[in-house]
Design a protein around this nucleic acid. Structure first.
Length: 475
DNA sequence: TGAAATGTTGGGGCG
DNA sequence: ACGCCCCAACATTTC
């Protein structure tokens, strides 16, 4: 009578789940999720991320029950919980899909050794990435086997290896999970916010595998072919919005890749460009995991050591608060920050603009921005977040050069010309004609008086740009 | 996946 | 008809 434990972590799906596939070859299966609040002390999950996790676990339990199983929830120190579970269900084997955050790799390595020492068979798999972070290395010559630090070179190397297809079908019948195995109630994990600020999240998101597959299907049908043209327009649903689903492993990157590649033969011209552009974005996600694996300090320290003594401002709490609350007086920045607060997500073009504004116009350390995003994004992901912020701040891999400072007025006029996005999130400005919507301070007084409650800019864009340039030049 | 400053060109108004 | 100036439009350089 063999029993296998399936330890679920960031792979909350049944389709294309190699650990699940392996665990199914067993008489009994115990799928478990362990809530361990002490696990990650540097990066405890933020409020938005916990909200998502709650609903994703709920969906996963439902899906497992449809297949004749169920999800066991446990709270406590991971090692103790697993040890206890192994004993009570007399498991002979445990399967999981690997995690890639540096601190979690250490945890998993140690656990694996302990479990193996106790006589358990441990099998681990890759469900979350196209390639293992250690798999893609530079070829011979000058620095053999060094990790890539430039995206295009990295992505070329990935293409040479070739992206593997989906190999694991969704099982429709799972081995039973004995009745005696007890779990906790999802509500008792304390993942939902005490103050119910999550109404806006419910409007937009459907956490869980079903929601992920629906989002992918909708993207493929509605937006993929025009991705190149629409992805930079924040008022339009031109992006996939798969990021939170990918973070929790409700869908795997191989599934996404394969679904897009299957359309490649039937598309030409700008549509073909769109497909490549989108797959490149999946590549950036991959690159982020590659970098954080090889440079594990980059979640809090710049990759480029020349930035170690960078002259960030020190007294900035008022400006930081204005940025967080979306009251900087810069319409596109405020719209983005309010979208984030309301939906747990922000359009990528606007992420670049608000991040450039924080790190360059306000000269506030990128780590402050990363921490705020970590707490408020439903797609908060250590690798992506660290890469993104370092990229904008100019201290990361393949980073934006220091002089690349976004002008939020021009970005708004370029990518939100009618101000549809700004009007949606900053209704105080709705009465302004489009020519002033991104720079209300230059509208005639007779129009500004109708924008009651909207603040003047916290900084002058021109002079703060010049201040940033001189700070960055002396870096 | 930038923006501003600076340089160049060419058409049109006008004496 | 011609030279001159202005300036928009585009190109290049610089940060």
């Amino acid at each position: 009578m063999s029993t296998t434990i399936l330890w679920l972590r960031q792979d909350l799906r049944l389709t294309d789940n190699p650990a699940l596939e392996a665990a199914c070859h067993s008489k009994r299966l115990v799928p478990v999720y362990i809530h361990d609040p002490a696990l990650n002390d540097r990066w405890p999950p933020g409020a938005a991320s916990k909200w998502w996790l709650h609903h994703s676990l709920s969906a996963l339990d439902r899906d497992l029950r449809h297949a004749g199983s169920r999800l066991i929830l446990r709270t406590g120190p991971t090692a103790e919980v697993l040890g206890d579970l192994v004993k009570t269900c007399k498991a002979t084997r445990i399967c999981w899909n690997r995690r890639y955050e540096p601190s979690l790799i250490d945890v998993d390595r140690e656990l694996k050794a302990v479990l193996q020492d106790s006589g358990l068979e441990v099998q681990t798999f890759n469900a979350g990435l196209l390639f293992e972070p250690w798999e893609i290395r530079r070829a011979a010559k000058e620095q053999p086997h060094a990790p890539y630090k430039v995206f295009t070179a990295y992505w070329r190397a990935c293409s040479r290896v070739g992206v593997p297809g989906v190999m694991h079908e969704r099982p429709d019948k799972l081995p039973v999970c004995s009745k005696e195995i007890l779990g906790e109630r999802l509500e008792d994990l304390g993942l939902l916010p005490r103050i119910r600020w999550d109404a806006g999240l419910h409007e937009l998101w459907q956490p869980g595998e079903k929601g992920a597959l629906a989002r992918l299907a909708q993207f493929l049908d509605d937006a993929l072919l025009d991705y190149s043209g629409a992805r930079d327009r924040p008022a339009v649903s031109g992006t996939s919005r798969l990021s939170p689903h990918l973070h929790f492993g409700e869908i795997g990157p191989r599934q996404v890749f394969q679904a897009v590649q299957q359309r490649e033969g039937h598309v030409r011209g700008s549509g073909a460009v769109s497909l490549e552009t989108f797959l490149r974005q999946v590549g950036w996600r991959e690159f982020a995991h590659h970098l954080l694996f090889h440079f594990p300090h980059t979640d809090h320290q710049p990759l480029n050591t020349r930035f170690n003594g960078f002259p960030w401002r020190h007294e900035y709490s008022d400006d930081l608060a204005a940025w967080q609350q979306g009251t900087t007086g810069i319409p596109l920045v405020d719209a983005g920050m309010r979208e984030l607060w309301h939906t747990g997500w922000m359009h990528n073009r606007v992420r670049m603009v608000v991040a450039s504004f924080l790190t360059k116009n306000l000269l506030i350390p990128w780590q402050e921005g990363a921490a705020w995003f970590w707490d408020t994004l439903v797609d908060a992901d250590l690798a992506n977040n660290s890469l993104g912020w370092q990229w904008v701040a100019g201290c990361g891999a393949d980073a934006a050069p220091y002089f690349r400072i976004f002008n939020p007025v021009l970005q708004g006029e370029k990518f939100d010309p009618e101000g549809v996005y700004v009007r949606r999130w900053v209704p105080e400005l709705d009465s302004l004609p489009s020519r002033y919507i991104h720079k209300p301070w230059s509208a005639p007084q007779s129009m500004q008086v109708h924008c009651t409650g909207y603040p003047p800019p916290v900084v002058d864009l021109k002079s703060s740009r010049e201040r940033a340039l001189s700070s960055y030049r002396r870096r």
